[in-house]
Design a protein around this nucleic acid. Structure first.
Lengths: 347, 347
DNA sequence: TTGAAAGCGCTAACAC
DNA sequence: GTGTTAGCGCTTTCAA
């Protein structure tokens, strides 16, 4: 039974790609030495480093990071999961993430979950299956199953753009409830008494709206019929949705004197429709957006809006993950970065 | 010399993660059967599929795609390389890419090269090192070294948002020269005779501008001094840049009657500044943007602009890569999808 | 400081 | 249909 069996000759599967072994042969060293030159050159004598670098140069070798990741159980990839990237407010966050992660040697992989959470499950499998060293979520993970899978994966996780008493792991964001309340109070202070809302239907917007409505009722800013006029559009909100929303609101509530929009894009639509209808802004109607997108300061009139620091969230999220991987203690794993109402001309 | 050496006992390095072997043990089958259930269930008998699926469910197993990629030399990842994602025109393309690739089981990895091409080389190494099954470039690869590395990697490549007689591989885009010429002719037909340009400094914009200037000179649309006024801002263009640009142009050329802007965002700034200065648009000044971003139809006045179909480019690029991987013959690897001038109110 | 051997977790290639 | 074996290209572990 112990008789050695003649080893069957197998064809190599290699696609002819250059490997570390080839470079080692060219440089006249062991493969592991090439690996060390790549990953920890300080552990290799200068002349060997020299030799190996020359061999890499000569051959045009590009290390296979997939193989490295498998062996080291470190993928040097971080995943970002967004509802959608189109017309989205998360772009600054993604930009900051990419920049900060790239500087630390990490690559971003992007997943779009859709606002309907339709593909969330398979997306999560595709992401976790690639064993990223960290995951950044735009928003919070609300599905209980999703949370369990993420926690079971033990991958460092950062939720963003929201605040919750029960974060799955780390969190950087702000309170949507606080925004709704703050905008209502802001409009009250500016003398507005008949407010309305035009909003996309996503969950975060709805929480802002709820807080806005509560504060508005408390401050007695209802319409003549005792209600706060409300128009819902599908997420993500568009300028066209804002235009339709303003017409709908005014049809039933001609005495409206302020509108809170779920995004700057929606607010832009409101401004445009108001122009068309000959409605003076801010004279007759105040308009407040959300996001402080680059164009918000350049509309006519300039848009009063809620500034959210997307870059900062991206930067902090990246740092969270880098620190967690490095084992650096993180004093506060939940960071509320707040928001500011930027008062321009439209309100 | 051939005496067998006692095998040294090594500790397993495994981090306690669940593997395919564990699932196989639970299901009472060979590891390869689990692999088949995951990748080609039609080759496994229904009752074994059943058993294995149950074991996967029970254990919460998530396949390690890194290991699968290494073994199969297929990563099921596609890389997109952009100058920058912030305020960028490429977002629709990225969105369409992600959607179409996800539907085919591919994940997107994102790389930002910066407009300065500063990090392009290390980015390329980080991307190629991950052995994506395809690479999509926003723009064309101009660096000779970059082209060589990409070609040496033999990874299917799609250049986008441009046209070149010498594509590195596949290409879907449109001619920036044609745009410049078409816009000049459009303005001429609308009776404009004193045109100017406000443009970001990126290379594609400059080619549009060159063609625009040539056509404008040919059509005798120069200013009184025989020159076409020109204002350059840094890339990517912003509304603030557009405002500054309009002031600069008018200072030297008060008789200007049309402006061609390098992006809709720049054009938005021009509209806003014109409002401030009391300049009637389109009465005294025509404004043309580029990109037909969602807000372009909703500015006041609505922006005349060049429509570029970012989604279509993303969709075609995804299809190119999917077909190439599948070995499907691709009749035309260079696709000019053209552009259209969308005439609205501003010109 | 350098190297040999043994994995990392999966799939291709080849039997039965 | 199912299983056995030998890699994929790298890094960890251990030894010198």
């Amino acid at each position: 039974m112990n008789a050695p069996v003649a080893p069957p000759k197998r064809t190599r599967r290699t696609k002819g790609g250059l490997t570390l072994v080839d470079v080692a042969r060219v440089a006249g060293v062991a493969p592991i030495t090439v690996s060390r030159v790549l990953n920890s050159p300080e552990k290799v004598s200068p002349d060997l480093v020299q030799k190996v670098r020359a061999a890499i140069e000569r051959t045009g070798y590009v290390p296979n990071l997939l193989a490295g990741s498998l062996a080291s159980t470190k993928s040097r990839m971080v995943a970002a999961i967004l509802p959608t990237i189109a017309g989205s407010v998360f772009i600054d966050t993604v930009q900051a993430l990419t920049e900060n992660l790239a500087a630390a040697g990490y690559q971003l992989i992007l997943g779009q979950s859709g606002y309907e959470n339709s593909r969330e499950d398979e997306l999560l499998e595709a992401i976790i299956g690639r064993r990223p060293d960290g995951i950044v979520l735009a928003g919070i993970m609300r599905s209980e199953q999703g949370r369990r899978r993420l926690q079971a994966s033990a991958i460092p996780l950062v939720e963003t753009w929201d605040l919750t008493p029960t974060p799955a792991d780390m969190l950087v964001g702000f309170s949507h409830e606080d925004i709704g309340q703050a905008v209502a109070e802001f409009l009250y202070q500016r003398g507005r008494r008949r407010v309305g809302v035009i909003s996309a239907s996503d969950e975060r917007a709805q929480r802002r709206n709820r807080a806005f409505l509560q504060a508005a009722v408390r401050l007695d800013m209802q319409g003549a019929d005792g209600k706060i006029p409300f128009h819902t559009i599908s997420a993500p909100g568009t300028a066209a949705g804002g235009r339709a929303g303003l017409r709908a609101l005014l049809a039933d509530h001609p005495d409206l004197d302020a509108v809170f929009c779920s995004s700057d894009m929606v607010a832009l639509g409101v401004l445009t429709e108001a122009h068309k209808l000959g409605i003076d802004i801010p004279g007759r109607l105040a308009v407040v957006g959300l996001g402080d997108q680059p164009f918000a300061a350049e509309t006519y009139p300039a848009l009063t809006t809620v500034h959210l620091d997307g870059r900062k969230m991206g930067q902090i999220a990246a740092q969270f993950i880098i620190d967690r991987i490095a084992g650096t203690p993180i004093p506060e794993v939940v960071r509320n970065i707040g928001f500011t109402i930027v008062e321009r001309e439209s309100a």
